[in-house]
Each structure stands twice: as C-alpha cells, then as structure tokens.
Design a protein around this nucleic acid. Structure first.
Lengths: 337, 337
DNA sequence: ATCTGTCCCGCAACCGATTGCGGAACGACC
DNA sequence: GGTCGTTCCGCAATCGGTTGCGGGACAGAT
C-alpha cells in the first residue's frame, strides 16, 4: 500500500493525500478526514526509506555495544529507550562482539543507514578512535559511553570509575579491613586502570601497604577458576574481596562458596555492580551502584541536544556518579593493633 | 558522499560507477579498480534507503521481544545474529516492554521499515495474533518464537515445554523425591500451562499424588517474596523444588539460602534454564537446558528459508529439544516406603 | 459580464541508486 | 573507405513521498 494506491482509491492526487496526512492548511477538513480514515482502514503508513529519501534525514540513532550480555547492557538499553521514546528518533542496536574489525564495519553500516547520531561503547580490542573519523566527516554526532577512550573530539559518558572503586575500598577499610583482594579486568583498558587507581588511592590515604599480590587482573572471568582458589586457600590474611564488575563478582562468589567460606563471616565482599545480581545472592552483596540506565539516559540526552543544536560545541566529559548500596556482605572487623 | 559526488570526482557517469561497484561485465577492469579505490578512499558506501527505494526490498529482518533482560534474551540475540550474519539480511530489534499496545505499534513500524520478515516473541498481554494480520497482508513472513500462541497461520519455534518440565520432574522422582514444589509463571500463558502439564504428567506416571498446594503460580518473580518463605518453613515434607525459569530459580535460591536451608542437603533444586545462571551459584544447579541461541538459530533459519522460497507452504511447529544438565543440586534420597 | 479573492487541489521536480537500451569509439577486414 | 563486431560507457526512467508553484472553481463585488 503506497500513497499512490491510496490516492487512486480516493480519486485524489498523491500530493493531496500527502498534505492531508500531514495536516497541511490547504486541505479541507472533510478531505483530511476522508484520507485519514482510509489510511487507517487500509493500514497505510509512510515508507520510512522513501521519507528519508525525500527529507534527507533518517531519524535514526545507532547504539553500538560490545555484546548484549546478562549484566549491564539490558539496563543501558532500557535507559536509552526511555529517553529516545520521547523524541522523534528511533534506535537501532549493533553488536561488535568485542571485535575491532566488526566495529569498523558497523561504523560503515551507520553511514549507509544515514544515522543522525551514534552512541558507542567500544570493544575490548579498540585502543584508539581513528575508525570513528568517517562519522565526524559525515557530520554524524557521536557519544562514547561506558567503555570510553580518552580523546578531545567526542563527548563521553562514563561512570566515575576511580571514585566508585575508591568508595568501595574505603567502605571496607572503614569497617576495619586492611588486607583486601582486588579483582580487576584487563589492565589495558582505561576502565580497569581507573578502578585499580581508585583501589590504590583508598589504600594510600589510609596508610595501608599496597601489595602487588593483592591485585588480580584477568582478561576473562573464567581465568579466575585457576587463579582465585589457591589465593583464597593460602592467603589467610585476606578479610575482604573487591570485584570491579558483575561478571567478576559472580565468579568470585562461586569460588568462595565452593571453598566452603562464608560471606561475610570468613570474607567480606564488595563490588561495583549495576544492581541486579547483588540482590540475587545470599547474602545480598554490598555494592557501589553503577547505573547502566542512568548512563544510557545521559548519553542519549547529550546526543539529542547535540542533534537539536548542531552548531554548539560539545566536548563534555560526563562522569555519572555512583552510590554505595549497603547490603549484607561486609562485616565490621574489630581493629586489633 | 553520494554516487553522484563519486562520479563527478572521477569524471564518470553515475551508472558507470554503480556498475563498476557491482562488478558488471560491461566495465573494464581498469575502471573498476579506479572506482573501487576512490570509493574506499572517500569511504563511500551505498545508501541503504536509496537502495531499498530502487530495489523494493530492504534486506531487513525484525526481532520483537518483550524485553531485553539478563536471562535468555542475550542468548537468543546471539543465536539470531550468528545465523543472520551469513545472509544478506540485517537485523533490527524492537522491544515491546510486554505491552500489547506497543507491540501493535511495532508491527506498524515494521511495515514502515518494509522489513522482509519478522520474528516475534509475544508480550505477556498478547492473547491472540490479530495484530499480526497487517504483516500477512503485506506478505511479510513472520515466525513466532519462545512465547508463542497457538494458531494455524504462522510457524513457531518453541521449546518443548511440557517435555522439558517432564524431564526435570522425572529426574527428581528417579532420585527418590515425591514431594516436589513446582514454581511457575502466570498460568494464563501457554508456556506456563505446558510446563505445569509436564509436571503433572511426570507425577501421574509415577503414581504420585497431585497436590494443589505444591503448584505455585506467580505473575512476577518478586511475588515469591511473600509466598515462598512460609511454604518452605512449614511444609516439611518437601524435598525438592522445581523452577520453570531463571528468574524464578534465582528468587527461589535466594529464599532457600536466606532461610538457612542448604542445597541439596535440605532441599534439592532443579530448573528449566538457558544455562548461564546455574553455573554461577554454589552448588551449581541441575537444570534442563533450554537453549535461547538454538531457538534463535532455528527461528532465523526457518525465516530465511521462507524468504528464499516464498511460495512454499510453511506452517511448521518446531519444538526445540532440551537436554538435562546434571550438576550438583539434586540429592538422591533413600526411598523409604 | 467581468474582476478579485479565497479555498482546494494537481502538476512536476526532486532525492540516490540501478539498469535496459542505445550509442560512441576503435580495430579488423574486405 | 565502408562495414561489422566488440568493448566500454552514458542517457533516462524508475521507485514513494514531499512541496513550490500555479491553476481551476466558485462566491461576492462592481
């Protein structure tokens, strides 16, 4: 059903039908009603490609994520969807599978789709933003989110990783913990580096020693299967464990449980989390909440405002604040000096 | 950068450029190389809307899901992406937020996008498929998946719910359990009904009594917060619990842990799951694996083959088989008669 | 009867990519 | 030099929807 079919059906010209549908003042109310009723009846809707073709803007915003996993991404998408729903844009989602090559291909796709804007959480393999330059050249607005890379070209929305991690470790220290195992992701990523540096900052501020052996970095959470059990078995000084993400948290808890240790009697646990998983465990895990939906909302808002005011400079770096959610997994230690 | 710009740059006509890019035999190799190199350099790619506009097919497949949650959906999308990657189609994902109204709107969107095919997992509010008829009229192929509704118009891909549930309960019975608490979702959905009927079938086959109080149906998993603890506390005969989904499993384990019961010493647990969560808990949960990615792959294959052979009749109901994954949460009881 | 103004509506061009058809350019051959 | 074949490429129409411009119809005024 095209506008032509509809016009023929009503013995009108396509232009009249088009104008009637968009409430053009030239068209009489009677005609408008006739046209709209018919459109409803034969459920005609304007073809989005043809509309783009004529108007030269697609009304699309792309979201590029490394993967749609059980943690974080669902919340992120929820936040974005909510914000975008009140605009005239539609969202399309691409997955890079954590591959730089795929990411590059997706950028190309974005050009083909003639998207108005892009929100991207870069892949694990992405160390610079050269592949985004085609977007800039085509005047497509782009916002980095979550996993961002330092640059002076694109605005970014990330959680304040150092602060989040600092909050978590400080909480442990305030509860009397001094020997804290930190579990981090691949240290090549800025996100891991910042979280490590938050750990270190908190330790330093409280004059606690920084032991290399208490900082574990793994590329994938399954790597913990080999690394974590011996440490938990042999390092008897440890009283607390910090996990920088939900994946690492889940694996850590599994190993703690498996070794017959109990939380928080034998070991206290704290994590940075998007706040779903910590409620599913027993005891529920005290965590610093890193809200995916908040981040999505903010990234989306920045993008929409950039699209509304294309001239204005926009190179803001937004740090989404985090909040400590005290649940049941941190025990207060008596401080013996 | 349009094909015209490129043509002008090379002092060729648009038609020559177009043909060169698609390896038309009329074009000399030298020209082809020149054109392709230039396209690469100025990273020109054909505009997808214009292409559709000309060719009258968008090369799009839509996936409509109730929500992108931490369980199941990620796997489903993974499976679909993998299959679709080897075709010439692209995937766009819509979320209905479990709303019938939104679902209807999305169908309209699909028409506007001129998608070639649709895969839909219907919302909780959807009780019939009338809203899909515009798709049928526009000759858009449609496959139901996961949450399907009985009909004779669209093919469907679902897990064999009754069988999965039967497998789970049978396993418990074979291990000596006779008092099994079954936890199910909203009984209005066929998916819950089938799983209940699998439970009943297994019980009947082993001449065990069907107690109404041992079947719990909740609309949302949080409802268990009020329902489950008193049952676990007072019904001392129960030796096993069956959860029909990951959400329900997670909540159930939480309450079991909270009450100080241990799995499987005090109570055995089994579930139907997509196979991620059961490995994150301790002990790991024995489950009937309901593979989202397998379902996605199959739905996608059916759709692609329907698109390749538009004439052929296709009303298949595919039941994706499930497999028992025996882990650590089911204890063998001594059978005392 | 002619003119002016108003209200509706249609004609036709345009957007980018594709493709049938036809034609220019060139070499080979009689 | 004319004819034919071959190789390579351009013209122009097309897809669906939008919109500037212009024109028909009709009423009221002169």
């Amino acid at each position: 059903m095209t506008i032509k079919d509809l016009a023929q059906l009503l013995s009108l010209s396509t232009s009249t039908v088009s104008r009637a549908l968009s409430d053009h003042p030239d068209i009489s109310d009677a005609t408008k009603k006739r046209v709209k009723d018919a459109a409803e009846e034969f459920n005609y809707t304007t073809n989005i490609h043809a509309r783009f073709f004529r108007n030269q803007h697609s009304g699309l915003i792309a979201l590029i994520v490394p993967e749609i996993n059980m943690f974080f991404t669902p919340n992120l998408i929820r936040g974005i969807n909510k914000t975008i729903a009140s605009s005239k844009y539609s969202l399309i989602i691409f997955q890079s599978n954590d591959s730089y090559k795929k990411e590059k291909e997706i950028i190309k796709q974005c050009l083909r789709w003639a998207v108005a804007g892009v929100m991207i959480s870069v892949s694990k393999e992405t160390y610079n933003l050269d592949h985004l330059s085609p977007l800039a050249r085509a005047d497509i607005k782009c916002v980095l989110l979550d996993k961002a890379i330092e640059n002076d070209q694109f605005p970014s929305v990330t959680i304040d990783s150092e602060e989040a991690s600092y909050q978590a470790i400080s909480t442990l220290i305030q509860n009397g913990h001094r020997h804290i195992l930190g579990i981090f992701g691949n240290p090549n990523f800025s996100i891991s580096q910042e979280r490590i540096s938050g750990y270190e900052k908190a330790m330093r501020e409280h004059q606690l020693p920084l032991l290399r052996e208490n900082i574990i970095s793994v590329d994938k959470s399954v790597d913990l299967d080999f690394i974590l059990p011996p440490i938990l078995n042999h390092n008897k000084k440890l009283t607390a464990l910090f996990a920088m993400s939900d994946e690492l948290l889940a694996k850590s808890i599994y190993h703690i449980d498996t070794l017959g240790l109990s939380i928080p009697q034998d070991i206290s646990v704290i994590a940075i989390s998007d706040g779903v998983y910590p409620y599913l465990t027993h005891p529920q895990i005290t965590h610093v909440k890193d809200s995916g939906s908040k981040m999505g909302r903010n990234a989306c808002k920045i993008l929409l405002s950039a699209l509304a005011n294309p001239r204005k400079k926009w190179d803001s770096k937004l740090l989404v604040s985090t909040k400590l959610v005290a649940l049941e997994s941190v025990r207060e230690l008596l401080i013996i000096d």
